[in-house]
């Protein structure tokens, strides 16, 4: 085991969470709707952080868990110690993306997020056709939901032309000023 205080100290600084407060009751994992899909359920994540083991920390950055967390907040709301696990997940996600350690099987999820952000970066609002197109080019899931789109269009749920806001320059500015 390679103990590394630094990763945990940084995490604690950014999130304000003292990982030692978790006493491993498992209530977060019990209530987590995605725990079954995760490689490490939330209480395991907490314990892995508590060990200060750098190898385990790297495993977390490379985990499916952080991308499967939907930030539904059930864990923190029921946590007897009010530990902000969603905040930890946010931190680990940003770090994972920043250090290019995104889990291979979670790439679709990240691709979707990126396509989503690309869409609003240029128009200010979400352009659903653009989002799907962007997602498909990123993932090559070219045939997914091909039958759905025409139905949506028929029901007036899929505008063909993007809505451009006037402040697109402002939006682009926001994107560039928040780029890490």
């Amino acid at each position: 085991m390679i103990a590394n205080q630094k990763s945990i100290l940084e995490l604690q600084q950014h999130t304000g969470v003292n990982v030692n407060r978790c006493y491993q009751c498992g209530k977060c994992s019990a209530g987590c709707q995605l725990a079954d899909e995760m490689d490490f359920p939330p209480s395991m994540v907490m314990h892995m952080l508590q060990t200060r083991d750098e190898e385990l920390f790297q495993q977390l950055l490379n985990s499916k868990t952080i991308w499967l967390c939907v930030s539904c907040q059930n864990c923190i709301e029921r946590c007897p110690m009010s530990i902000d696990i969603p905040q930890i997940m946010d931190y680990l996600r940003e770090k994972s993306a920043g250090e290019h350690k995104i889990n291979h099987q979670s790439r679709d999820i990240v691709a979707f997020h990126r396509a989503f952000l690309d869409s609003i970066k240029y128009t200010g609002r979400l352009y659903e056709i653009g989002l799907i197109a962007g997602y498909k080019t990123r993932t090559f899931h070219l045939t997914q939901d091909v039958k759905l789109a025409p139905k949506m269009y028929a029901k007036g749920k899929l505008p063909l032309v993007p809505e451009m806001i006037k402040g697109t320059r402002n939006i682009k500015g926001i994107f560039s000023r928040t780029k890490h």
Binding site: W67, V70, S71, D90, R93, E94, A97, V110, F112, H113, R114, F116, L117, I120, G124, R125, L126, I165, K166, G167, I171, T178, K179, H180
Partner: peptide, 14 residues
């Protein structure tokens, strides 16, 4: 001239 709130994507990435 409202814009998108960023939804889960922004929250998760940045």
């Amino acid at each position: 001239d409202w814009n998108c709130c960023g939804a889960t994507a922004a929250h998760n990435m940045n």
